[in-house]
């Protein structure tokens, strides 16, 4: 209780960090639900890593061009990282989705290759970048500590935009995902809705990677959605529950990490794993669970 009181006090030093964590925890599962439903779980693994490679390249670019990054404000650096992250996320998701739709080759192989190459490239780039050592490697590991008001504002604005667009056009995004042929017959512009969904996924992944790092972004994208699917009875419950599990894990994870002096990100992911196990047990007890039902297991 004392920790919660401290966290909510106005002069709490890490206030921005917890707000950012909870925002990421609430927003990531909303797009994660679509990754799970479209059976793009592997994309959920690869995208945050590709996004973080975008950050690494964006931060290396000034160095390659002979600019001194330390002369610029942290806002400019953060914005540069965001641009790198979102450019790589969107390019990757559009290319991978296009290749998936063509139905040739091995999607898992492509995603696995993209993941491992992106991870290696990030490490190589940051190891040769002097600014990598002053925080960006921490970011990659999921240390949610130094979040400025500007960073929090950018995260909040991006994630609120994602939540608003998702809420407004949820029906169309669901129709195109569930029954593409029906959407075409109803004269819906399926390419537009697909691109919008990918744009929302890309924006969320980019912002989550910048805020909490790729490992934690992946955790928040998929584990809450997979957990909620086991106990939800309909789409509304699925989406709301996934978001609540994400938000709750982010908040509790922060409290635990603060209390025991642990890194926040990994604490969040372990907690998500624990919640996944709890929902799995609940799904065995409560009738009409989602994935538990034999018809739903493939």
């Amino acid at each position: 209780m004392e920790i919660i009181y401290q966290i909510f006090s106005p002069d709490f030093l890490l206030r921005n960090s917890i707000y950012t964590s909870v925002l990421v925890g609430l927003a990531c599962p909303l797009v994660g639900v679509f990754l799970v439903m479209r059976r793009l779980v592997f994309m959920g693994v690869a995208l945050p890593q590709i996004s973080s490679t975008g950050v690494a390249i964006a931060l290396s670019l000034p160095l390659w061009l002979g600019f001194n990054l330390s002369e610029h404000s942290s806002h400019s650096t953060h914005m540069l990282a965001f641009i790198g992250s979102i450019t790589f996320s969107l390019t990757a998701i559009l290319v991978l989705a296009f290749l998936e739709r063509r139905g040739r080759g091995q999607p898992e192989g492509r995603l696995g290759t993209a993941y491992v190459v992106a991870a290696a490239l990030s490490i190589l780039l940051l190891s040769k970048n002097p600014y990598g050592e002053i925080g960006w490697l921490d970011m990659m590991k999921g240390e949610v500590i130094a979040i400025s008001n500007f960073d929090l504002g950018l995260t909040a604005a991006t994630l609120m935009l994602v939540i608003a667009v998702m809420g407004l056009f949820h029906r169309e995004l669901l129709l195109v995902s569930f029954d593409r042929e029906m959407a075409i017959i109803l004269r819906k512009n399926v390419i537009f809705w697909d691109v919008l969904l990918y744009l929302l996924i890309g924006m969320t992944v980019s912002m989550a990677v910048l805020s909490v790092g790729p490992l934690i972004a992946f955790g928040f994208l998929l584990i809450p959605a997979l957990s909620a699917h086991m106990v939800a009875r309909n789409m509304r419950q699925f989406i709301v529950l996934a978001s609540l599990i994400g938000g709750l894990a982010a908040f509790l994870g922060f409290c635990i990490a603060y209390k025991f002096d642990l890194p926040v990100g990994p604490t969040d992911v372990v907690l998500l794993g624990f919640l996944y196990a709890v929902t799995w047990i609940i799904a065995r007890i409560v009738p009409h669970g989602g994935l538990r039902h034999p018809h739903n297991v493939q």
């Binding site: 799970v36 439903m37 059976r39 669901l174 995902s177 569930f178 029954d179 699917h229 939800a232 009875r233 309909n234 789409m235 419950q237 699925f238 989602g290 994935l291 018809h295 739903n296 493939q298």
Partner: peptide, 11 residues
């Protein structure tokens, strides 16, 4: 249809 979608008959 993929059974992963938690849609009701009405949906």
């Amino acid at each position: 249809f993929d059974p992963i979608y938690l849609l009701t008959g009405f949906d």
